[in-house]
Design a protein around this nucleic acid. Structure first.
Length: 427
DNA sequence: GGATGTACGCGCTTTTGCGC
DNA sequence: GCGCAAAAGCGCGTACATCC
């Protein structure tokens, strides 16, 4: 696809979750691009091996990378750098064709990892130590997630199966993991079992990768993990999981606005939450005074696998500013009822339930966020602006590189239009 | 035989409900 | 107002079908 069409034009036309061939790679395979459901743009090298055509990820596209750069920037690849990476992969594939191609190259790399791990194998490093080390790494991104993961292990493994928790990590068998999971499963805690399995798998995966991934802490090496005992355990599926598509309809949103329009700190929080575009509660409650500016505020989003933390710039329309002033306190956190600590999302939910009650059937605060999306859509706000406002495409290239003030005016107008709709009588 | 397009399940993180 | 358990949201890899 070496045409006159620029890569930015290609990206603009690319459908989410679809692969698009960019160009052929000599001697084998193709360089392809994929946009995720939320707008991330990722390079892959794809090749047919036997009856399969796996796509091997190269890395994110970095629109700000110099076009002629041959190696990736910290933020990703230029087209040229991605092409060179794909060519390198293709050459390895070609060299190993008689042995099975690139799949074999990867397998050999894993064997080398295992051999190295064996050399470093050390006694005394238990499953619990490994797990907690992993949890500590989670804590650097999100304390809440780390706390929950820690409690999960303490309650379901350390307390119930202490002998398994104390087993040397690289000697833990799949059967031992299954024993733990079965115990939780039999108590009908399906999601708990599923989550524990996920964390155990992730802890082992991180330790196993310690030698080849610079982002993995040095301490993981001493566990000498050469295989993941969780990998060959069949999937633990939750029962009766559904998808919440129960967004508040525009008329409900108007009703909601009427309900929360009365004075008071609790309603002020709900007004602020709504007029900021229905931001995620977990992020909104962590708002710090240093991130509150004259006409906008900044929230920080750590959602996603990349481990990065991203700013979400939200314009403050006058009504939102007024709501903020009603409950803003001094200190580190702008929204707090316990000195020195951010407001709990749990508390906020309680407020919302108490205030709204039965005035809106089956009301939950979560429905406000999706209700904002629905309302903005009705108000002709395009999806790109909606996504930026609610940080739905955080990992997309546009989101990573856009200037703090990009879309500010569009987002402000969207919020003002929404406010105008809310305060207008439907009759 | 190899390239391309699409759907879907799993892993991880965030949000919400319940009970204290 | 908080801790815990469960549900929901989202990125990613891969199976599968079809095309060249």
């Amino acid at each position: 696809m070496k045409t006159n069409v620029s890569i930015s034009e290609v990206i603009a036309k690319l459908q989410p979750r679809k692969f698009l061939k960019l160009e052929s790679i000599a001697p084998y395979g193709t360089l392809v691009l994929r946009k995720t459901g939320k707008g991330s743009v990722v390079f892959y090298w794809r090749v047919t091996i036997g009856s399969k055509s796996p796509a091997y990820q190269i890395g994110l596209y970095d629109s700000s990378a110099p076009p002629l750069s041959k190696s990736p920037t910290p933020n990703g690849y230029s087209l040229r750098a991605a092409r060179m990476a794909a060519e390198s992969m293709a050459e390895k594939h070609y060299a190993a064709l008689s042995d099975g191609g690139y799949e074999t190259v990867i397998a050999q790399q894993q064997l080398q990892e295992q051999a190295l791990a064996k050399e470093n194998a050390a006694a005394g490093h238990s499953l619990e130590k490994l797990y907690m080390l992993y949890v500590d790494s989670l804590a650097t991104r999100n304390h809440e997630t780390a706390k929950q993961a820690r409690n999960l292990f303490a309650k379901n493994v350390a307390a119930v199966f202490p002998e398994i928790a104390n087993t040397q990590a690289n000697r833990v068998s799949s059967e031992q993991v299954v024993t733990v999971l079965r115990d939780i499963w039999s108590a009908e805690k399906y999601n708990t079992a599923r989550k524990l399995k996920a964390y155990l798998h992730a802890a082992y995966a991180m330790a196993k990768n310690a030698d080849h991934n610079p982002t993995v802490a040095e301490e993981f090496k001493v566990f000498a993990i050469k295989q993941n005992p969780v990998s060959d355990i069949e999937g633990v599926k939750p029962k009766d999981t559904g998808v919440d598509k129960n967004a508040l309809l525009p008329d409900d949103m108007r009703k909601y606005w009427q309900v929360i329009s009365k004075a008071g700190a609790q309603t002020a929080f709900l007004r602020l939450h709504l007029l900021l575009g229905g931001q995620r509660l977990e992020q909104l409650v962590r708002l710090k005074n240093c991130d509150v500016h004259e006409d906008m505020l900044v929230l920080w989003d750590s959602k996603g696998r990349t481990g990065s933390v991203r700013p979400i710039v939200v314009p403050l329309i006058p009504a939102a500013l007024a709501a903020l002033k009603e409950l803003q306190v001094q200190g580190e956190y702008a929204l707090s009822v316990t000195p020195g600590r951010p407001l709990s999302t749990r508390t906020v939910n309680t407020w919302a339930q108490n205030i709204v009650g039965e005035q809106i059937p089956a009301f939950t605060l979560k429905r406000v966020r999706s209700g904002v999306t629905t309302l903005l859509s009705k108000l002709q706000v395009n999806a790109e602006i909606r996504n930026h406002l609610q940080s739905h495409n955080l990992h997309g290239v546009e989101a990573r590189h856009y200037n703090m003030y990009d879309f500010a005016e569009e987002k402000r107008k969207a919020l003002e239009d929404m406010y105008a709709f809310l305060v207008t009588s439907s009759k």
